[in-house]
Design a protein around this nucleic acid. Sequence first.
DNA 1: TGAACAAGACGAGACGGTCCGTCTCGCATA
DNA 2: TATGCGAGACGGACCGTCTCGTCTTGTTCA
Lengths: 204, 204
Amino acid sequence: MPTTPQRPDPRTRPNPGRRSERSRAAILRATRELVSEVGYPRLSIEAIAARAGVGKQTIYRWWRSKGAVVFDAFLALSEGADGVVLPDTGDIEADLKEVLRATVAEFADPVFEAPIRALNMEVAGDPELAAQYRERLAAPVDEAKKERLRSAQRAGQIRADADLDLALELLYAPLYQRWLLRSAPLTPEYADALVEHVLRALRP
Amino acid sequence: MPTTPQRPDPRTRPNPGRRSERSRAAILRATRELVSEVGYPRLSIEAIAARAGVGKQTIYRWWRSKGAVVFDAFLALSEGADGVVLPDTGDIEADLKEVLRATVAEFADPVFEAPIRALNMEVAGDPELAAQYRERLAAPVDEAKKERLRSAQRAGQIRADADLDLALELLYAPLYQRWLLRSAPLTPEYADALVEHVLRALRP
DNA sequence: TGAACAAGACGAGACGGTCCGTCTCGCATA
DNA sequence: TATGCGAGACGGACCGTCTCGTCTTGTTCA
């Protein structure tokens, strides 16, 4: 053992301790702006570096692909709200309708539309990003939703042996698919119908 | 009216009657091969033209984007089976389980995996392709599925006033989402559980 | 009827661009 | 002294457009 034992890969890995927070923030900010302006497909690393006033190498040093940068850029926005809590009035049907109507509204908002779509396309094509997406974004939100369903189970509004993961998919996947493939318009009425149908499957 | 009336756009539109079927087939074949070999993101028009023994202009003359070529390349495969008919043994639960298990198997097949994923990412990002996708691929298949559900309605196994479009989404969107985002493994047992839950919502 | 002609799609590839990812430069920060 | 940094040069891959000369097809006229 001639050299230091604890050294994973010193020739490739940069030292995170010396990383410039100023540059990191400028890159993520420029990325968000450019995705909104030109859309994800026409977004380029060159343009991000130029807009952020940063060398290209600084981007390649810390991210492994354009998709990873975009992912971090929008993840940073959503991660602030970690304490996700859903409404719980005691009426599971009313609460779910409110949450799904809010989701419909969010998908319809042109400000969110472009970035979310870009993020989803990237996640669909990159298994590693997909894993990060699940861990850092989907998992906490899903846990909050399942907690609300558990509350409904305790209140006897949902079968005690219901598979909550499947329940979540039944609630959100149709919404997500309509939006992603633009197969049909997303309306509040649709959200209501969806909740009513899924609850019929989940009730005792 | 000095010139011929029936002339939509002679300076830009080529004449489909003079199109080379040989070149068209070679392009679609080369596209299918290359998508399988290098994946969709690394697929280039130049490579397609070279592999097909065709001038680049011949591709740009008939397709408006790389995505459109890929779309046609794989659409041509699926369109042969126009007379889509689903099994109808009289037992809607058994029939749906069989169909959904088949879908799960198809998604798991590595031969289909890459192209279908490429196609879906392209469709998600291009509204015009999405419209074509719905018309030429989704619509006929969905109609066959709805016909099977109508048969179940007549047999009294499904509520007469059920929204069949929503029913289809409840059945397939969760499957589709699991596969697209790789959020959980797709198994035959999952297909069965999905059918059982959805039918609970649809029964009279 | 058949030779001459015109139109247009074709294979090939040159062309100016954009962007890629890698690689030096000094600089400055620790 | 080491290392991240901004800047940008560099070769290469593709882009989408364009110009060639060729080949096919339909029309005209001897």
